[in-house]
Structure formats: structure tokens, C-alpha cells
Simulated assay, not measured.
Amino acid sequence: MNLNKIDFNLLKVFVTVYQEKSLKRAAERLFVTTPAVSQNIKKLKEALNEELFVLSHRQFVPTPYSDDLYAKVFPLLEGIGLALEETKIFDPSTLQQSFNLDVSPHLQVWLGTSLFKTFHEQSPRSTLVLHTITSSTLTGLCDGSIDAAIHFEAENLPPEIVAIPLIQLEFMIAMRRDHPFKKSEAYIDELLEYSFGHIDLAYLDPNKHSRLEDLLKEAGINIHMAMRTTSVAGLISTIMNTDIIGPCFPPTIETVSQHVRLVRVLDMLDLTTIQLYLFIHQKNLSSPKYKWLTEIISDAVKVDSK
């Protein structure tokens, strides 16, 4: 392949289409029209004289040639981008791009608004994309389709992903205000007569389970987990309208504190707090753009968790 004949902008479009598997989504990321993306892919195909994608179930599936090309081109483009960033004074107000963050559902209830305010004030022409963290988040962090993730787990990570500690959040039990249990503090045995609800957090590591369940199981204590969900809003609504109780963090409950109260567990020292992390690719650690993103995320978490 003679790179002297290849427009590097075509390679940038190729990388985005490869990651998104969609011309439309690639166009949205690049702030261009879908026909423009299609035309660029056609130009690159003709320049290389190779088939790059095939349409299957409305997705652009890369060919083996594209897999090999992406593996070689993506690191080079990333390196060029970082080098260019480091040679100029970084000003977020000049950016015009999307920032894709995958966030634990526990955090979206309270973190999204303040994070967006700061983000929009400092980079008004950019777009903040907040999605719920999934089992494919680590893959997205590795291939660059996801800029950062915010979550609680920090085990079994790929070597290229770095976990940056943000803050520790207090673990408490949430229940409706007129719940039959009236105390503000409790030993776990006092709560076991009630059914529990739980937010599924096993996104990055499928072997992860509820810390509460694991600790009680180790102690030979049975717990009735009556509800499992990935929806914090769904769990809170159920807590507000039934006798079910569930582990939550104070910032999550703040907006519904007139209906829900928190009970501190006195004898679960291993669950007193849980560490929150920001996950990014190690190649971005020295990038001014990612340093800025890390800073505004860290500030938003610290402000909202007070």
C-alpha cells in the first residue's frame, strides 16, 4: 500500500465507520453527512482496490482486509492526534466533537446534570454522550469508540486500561420513609426479615456479584433478593411503594429524600464505602484533552457526592 496516494482524512473516516459499523453513526461522530461518509469510503476502496465493508443485517461488517488495516492505522492516527494536541495550547471552547462516556446507572441519576453543565459551559460546541455501562464498555475503551467510563470495579482490566480513583461513596440501605423499620442505624440481622432489591453492577467483570450478597454468603447468612434490575429509577420507585429495601448511595437518594430514607449498617465494615473509578486508555493519560475531561468529571463527582 502506497500511503503517498492516500488522503489521511479517508483513513480517519474509515476508522470511524469501522468502530461504529454504521455510516449514519459515523457521520454523526464526524459532524458530516451520511452521503459524504459513503463517498469517502468509496474513494478509499478504489484507492486500495480492496473491499472494506459488506452490508449485513443493516450493519457495515468489516472484511478481513479491513480488520488488518484498522489494526495498523488506528494506533497511527491516535498517535498523530495526541502529538498535535500536545503542540498547541488546549482550549476546550474550540472543540467541536462528541465525548462518549459509559456510566454506572447508580451515577446517572445524580451525576449527569452537573457534569453536563460544566462540560457545556467549557465546550459549548461539543456533545456529551452518556450511556449506561455495558459488557462491551472495555472493548469500546480499547478501540477508542468510548472516551471514558465511570464505575466501581477495577479488577480484571485489560493492561491498556487505567483505573483512576475518584472518590469513595458511603454504602447505606434505602427504604421508604414510612417503612415498618423505624431506626436510622441497624445491624444487618435486623434487616434480613425484609426483601431486598439490587442494582446489577456486573458490567465490566461478569464474575462480579453483589458485594452484600457475597459477604453474607461467606458468613452463612441467607438474604432474599426479591428484585434485580439495571434501572436505578425502577428500584427506587419500587422502594418508594413497597417494603422492599436496597443498597444505595446518598447522592442517589437525595432527589427523592422526601419519600426515601437511608439506614446506616453498623456491622458490615467491608461495605462501609465503595471506591469509584474513572477508566481511560493509558495512551490518553498525557493528552491535554483527556486531562481536561478527567478534571471536570472528578470535580462533578466530588461536588455532587457531598
Rank of each mutant, 00 (worst) to 15 (best):
F8K: 15
L11G: 13
L11P: 07
V13R: 06
F14H: 12
F14R: 06
Y18W: 08
E20H: 03
K21F: 00
S22L: 02
L23T: 01
L23E: 09
K24P: 01
R29H: 12
T34Q: 14
P35F: 13
A36E: 04
V37R: 05
N40D: 07
I41N: 05
L44T: 05
K45F: 06
A47Q: 11
N49W: 08
F53I: 01
F53H: 14
V54K: 09
R58Q: 04
V61S: 11
S66F: 10
A71I: 09
A71M: 10
F74E: 00
F74K: 03
L76C: 03
L77R: 07
L77I: 13
E78T: 04
I80R: 12
G81L: 03
F90E: 03
D91Q: 06
D91A: 12
N100T: 05
D102K: 08
S104C: 13
S104K: 11
P105I: 14
H106F: 15
L107E: 15
T113Q: 12
T113L: 14
T113F: 06
T118C: 09
H120M: 14
E121P: 04
Q122F: 09
R125F: 15
S126T: 13
S126C: 03
T132L: 15
T134P: 06
T134A: 03
T137F: 02
C142H: 06
I146E: 06
D147V: 00
D147Y: 04
A149H: 04
A149N: 11
F152M: 10
A154D: 12
A154R: 07
I161C: 02
I161M: 00
P165E: 01
P165G: 01
L166Q: 08
M172Y: 01
A174N: 07
A174R: 04
M175S: 00
D178H: 03
D178I: 15
H179V: 06
A186F: 02
I188S: 09
L192I: 00
Y194V: 15
F196M: 06
A202M: 00
L204M: 11
L204S: 05
N207A: 14
K208L: 15
H209I: 15
S210G: 10
H224D: 10
A226G: 05
T230H: 08
A233T: 04
G234H: 11
G234T: 09
N241Y: 12
T242N: 05
G246L: 08
P247M: 13
C248W: 02
F249C: 13
F249Q: 13
P250N: 09
P251F: 08
P251K: 01
T252F: 09
I253D: 02
S257A: 12
S257K: 14
H259R: 14
H259M: 10
H259A: 06
H259T: 00
L262E: 01
L262A: 04
R264A: 00
V265H: 08
L266P: 05
D270Y: 02
L271D: 11
Q275A: 13
L276Q: 00
L278H: 01
I280N: 02
H281G: 05
N284S: 08
N284I: 09
S287Q: 01
L293R: 08
L293M: 08
E295D: 04
S298L: 00
K302C: 14
S305I: 12
